[in-house]
Design a protein around this nucleic acid. Structure first.
Lengths: 196, 196
DNA sequence: CCTACCGATCGGTAGG
DNA sequence: CCTACCGATCGGTAGG
């Protein structure tokens, strides 16, 4: 499986994406309006509509922009030793979100709209597949090297993603970053129990 | 810890709550309007406002109505044998949601609004505490009876909730009920690994 | 409880 | 890219 398709953003596109990012962190997804994006952009709403015909189109582009950055950060984990690499990937998924709680809130809002917006659904689906692919590869690598038990890598991977998404959801809903630490510990316990 | 406080609903209140429930399942939370609730109620929007001054007030009441039903269903698990009871509680949390996917979608939407609506936050928080209390009691019961290892019941409980919320979130976002089954299996694996 | 309505806000567009 | 504006929709209310 190759990396997800890349998308090119002109400097203007980038400026609008960053404006969207700021508006989203400040007001949340439910209160994200073209006007607020335009304010952050520093121009009129018509200027935003000049580059993106509809709000939906802009938001789809924004998800591409955001998830690309996320994929890059996952990609940045270069350690190859399976045991260490798995822990570092889990850190990336559960420790790093602590740096930006406002974004986590907005992202859960957007995820909750996936059932109504196919453009969202497609992108979250693809992103999830990519992360699962990365995790599965490490697990299989560990099995091949004999450091992990010969388990159902597909299931283990899905279980870890369940723990990751559970920690993220709970951190937002219960407004408590410790939920991410709990989930991180749970993930390690699960890895220990199933892979050794 | 006692059961969460009960709230009394008149027949009119009940009718409005059921109308809200239907409107929510049909249109989702983001598109839930007083007009749509009134349509389901079969009367005018002014009629709805006659009983609930504001939309926020109505939604807070609705969450009470909904979470009370949920607590009742958890309360309905009467088995006392710790091992069996834990499995039945997990079934209640992860198998039963499969019956009503539309409600699960709307509930995730509402959960994602907790950071912006204190009335929501309070209620989800209280509901979570109650479920954790029920789970913790079973784990401690099992420890006392010697069928479970002497573990940190608090942590085990939070881990299980993480798996539960992960399964629920993923089922909605990825539009796949199998995510709940995966989470159910993960929960059993975790219980097996940590408690035996 | 209804009819009728208000002010506010939204996404989007015409015309330049 | 801006100013100015449109039609649609929202939550809520006045008056009965």
């Amino acid at each position: 499986m190759a990396d997800p398709p890349e998308r090119t953003f002109s400097e203007t596109d980038q400026a609008i994406m960053e404006a969207t990012y700021r508006a989203l962190r400040e007001h949340g997804y439910a209160d994200l309006t073209i006007k607020r994006i335009a304010n952050e952009y520093g121009k009129s709403t018509a200027a935003v509509h000049y580059y993106y015909d509809t709000k939906d189109e802009l938001l789809a582009a924004f998800l591409d922009y955001l998830l690309e950055q996320f994929v890059d950060s996952i990609h940045g984990v270069e350690t190859t030793d399976p045991e260490e690499r798995l822990e570092l990937l889990l850190d990336e998924l559960l420790v790093k979100p602590q740096e930006n709680p406002d974004l986590s809130i907005a992202l859960l809002e957007m995820r909750s709209q996936a059932p109504y917006k196919e453009a969202f659904s497609e992108r979250f689906q693809q992103n999830d597949e990519y992360i699962r692919y990365m995790l599965k590869a490490v697990v299989n690598h560990g099995i091949d090297e004999g450091v992990f038990n010969d388990v159902d890598a597909n299931h283990i991977t899905r279980s870890l993603m369940t723990i990751v998404d559970g920690g993220r959801t709970r951190a937002v809903v219960l407004d408590n970053l410790e939920e991410l630490e709990t989930a991180r510990r749970t993930a390690s316990e699960y890895v220990d129990a199933m892979l050794r």
